[in-house]
């Protein structure tokens, strides 16, 4: 299967993340923010209808800490 069509999961580079909180603004369906602005991932797997939003959130991270991984299965 084409990797682009595979199910996607969110991955956060915890060391790179500085709690800017943009991901939580752009993808509140899957990401909450704690009181310091750091992401709380509610669900790692990205449903198809949120894929574009997830991509936008990953692109918006100023630290490039949010990644959208293609599932290996």
């Amino acid at each position: 299967m084409n990797p682009a069509n595979r199910a996607k999961t969110l991955r956060i580079d915890r060391i790179a993340c500085t709690g800017q909180g943009l991901c939580g603004e752009l993808l509140p369906e899957l990401i909450d923010l704690d009181e310091w602005g750091y992401p709380i991932v509610k669900d790692r797997s990205v449903p198809d209808h949120l894929r574009a939003h997830a991509r936008r959130a990953a692109a918006a991270c100023p630290l490039l800490a949010l990644h959208l991984d293609a599932d290996r299965t």
């Binding site: 993340c17 709690g19 704690d34 310091w36 750091y38």
Partner: peptide, 9 residues
């Protein structure tokens, strides 16, 4: 002190 939980939590 690299990640959120160790910096603040």
């Amino acid at each position: 002190r690299q990640c959120g939980p160790c910096r603040f939590g």
